[in-house]
Computed example of a mutant assay.
Amino acid sequence: MRNAALTLGVIAGVIGLIVGFFSYGYTVFIEEFGEVGDIAHQVDNIALVRGAALLSPILAIAGGAMARSQNIAAGVLLLASAAGMMWAFGFGVFTMFPIAMAGLGGLLALLARQPDAH
């Protein structure tokens, strides 16, 4: 289960990096060039989106990397990553996989009782 948490965490972090990059870039674009009619509006909480765009993927990758040796800390980091992405970006077509993978990885890490067999 620890290996599954490791894999899910790293994949969630990489996908989260892509979502975070575009989310951060979107807020900068709208701030720089202004809103575009009914097509593009600035988000309500710019600091939340930018903070989650940076921190949530890092938490997922760090949690995944720690899953084999420190499963409780890894589970907490992965669940915090999933919660951060859900809070800042919402659940949608581009965020469903990193949120679900980080959440499942966090649960698997917390439920792991003994080291995986080699």
Results as ranks from 00 to 15, higher is better:
58 I>P: 03
107 L>F: 14
105 G>P: 03
64 G>D: 00
34 G>W: 02
41 H>G: 06
46 I>Q: 10
106 G>T: 01
52 A>Q: 03
95 T>M: 02
104 L>V: 15
67 A>C: 06
80 A>Q: 06
116 D>R: 11
1 M>K: 03
76 V>W: 00
98 P>D: 00
43 V>N: 07
84 G>Q: 09
95 T>F: 05
21 F>H: 10
38 D>T: 14
11 I>M: 06
90 G>H: 10
96 M>E: 10
45 N>F: 13
43 V>R: 01
2 R>G: 14
70 Q>V: 13
19 V>S: 03
102 A>Q: 04
39 I>M: 14
53 A>M: 09
60 A>P: 01
117 A>C: 06
106 G>M: 12
54 L>C: 10
102 A>V: 00
47 A>K: 03
19 V>Y: 09
37 G>L: 09
11 I>V: 15
115 P>Y: 08
68 R>I: 10
52 A>F: 11
98 P>R: 13
19 V>A: 06
8 L>G: 07
68 R>T: 09
2 R>Y: 01
53 A>D: 02
64 G>F: 09
106 G>I: 04
24 Y>R: 11
1 M>A: 08
51 G>I: 03
99 I>Y: 01
101 M>I: 04
50 R>A: 02
47 A>I: 08
57 P>A: 07
26 Y>R: 06
50 R>T: 12
76 V>L: 15
43 V>P: 03
64 G>R: 14
84 G>D: 13
57 P>I: 04
9 G>L: 07
71 N>A: 14
11 I>H: 01
88 A>D: 11
27 T>I: 02
58 I>R: 08
14 V>M: 14
27 T>D: 02
34 G>L: 00
22 F>P: 02
7 T>G: 14
112 A>Q: 06
55 L>D: 01
49 V>Q: 12
88 A>H: 04
47 A>V: 12
84 G>C: 05
92 G>P: 00
7 T>Q: 10
30 I>Y: 01
8 L>Y: 08
107 L>Q: 02
94 F>I: 07
38 D>W: 11
80 A>E: 05
